[in-house]
Amino acid sequence: MRLAELVRDIRKSRGISQATLADLAGTTQSKISGIENGKANVELATLRNICAALDAEVVIIPRRTIGAVQSIIDEYLNRDRRLRSESVMSVRDELFIPDSDD
């Protein structure tokens, strides 16, 4: 997925307009529009501000390690799904840590 699509999809999922995102990120609506349409080059500082406004992170991954990193990301995302699907009998069951004598 390209940066333009990611920014647009995340912004829309947060329910905010380009103008609101621009205001939160300290840039202009036309810059956000250009980024989302793939027509504007974005500086790293601007990208970090946009990500902060969207409650997202910028992660730079060297191409040589992409396979290993992708599997780590997939595992992490699947872990979140597994955690949501596991049932907890009670708060006590979730927090119970047995003593070493048990």
Rank of each mutant, 00 (worst) to 15 (best):
L6T: 10
T46S: 13
N78P: 00
N78F: 00
P62A: 13
S100D: 14
R8D: 12
G15F: 01
P62E: 14
P98I: 07
N37C: 13
I32C: 06
P62V: 07
G67N: 11
P62L: 11
Q18D: 07
R79G: 01
L24W: 10
A68S: 14
G38F: 10
R8E: 13
K12L: 10
A40F: 09
S17Y: 03
A4R: 14
D74M: 11
R11P: 01
G67W: 00
I66V: 15
A52T: 08
Y76N: 02
D80G: 15
E94K: 11
S33K: 05
I66D: 08
L47Q: 07
A53M: 08
P98S: 11
V69E: 09
M89G: 10
G15I: 04
R84T: 04
I97K: 03
T46M: 05
Y76E: 03
E57F: 11
R63P: 01
L54D: 11
N78D: 13
E43I: 04
D74I: 14
A4D: 14
M1H: 09
A52K: 13
E86G: 00
D9K: 15
V59P: 00
E86M: 12
D99N: 05
I60W: 07
R63W: 00
S90C: 01
E36R: 10
L95H: 03
V91C: 00
R11E: 01
S90L: 05
S87K: 14
D99M: 02
E75N: 12
V59D: 04
T20P: 00
Q29H: 04
M1C: 03
I16Q: 03
L21N: 02
S90M: 02
V58W: 03
A19V: 14
R81K: 14
L47H: 08
T27R: 03
V42G: 09
G26R: 08
L44M: 15
R2W: 00
R48A: 11
A40K: 13
E94A: 15
P62K: 11
I73N: 04
K31I: 09
C51W: 04
G26N: 09
N78G: 01
G15L: 06
I10D: 01
T27Q: 04
V58A: 10
R63A: 13
L24H: 07
M1P: 07
I32K: 05
I16M: 13
Y76H: 07
L54V: 09
D102S: 08
N49Q: 12
S33V: 02
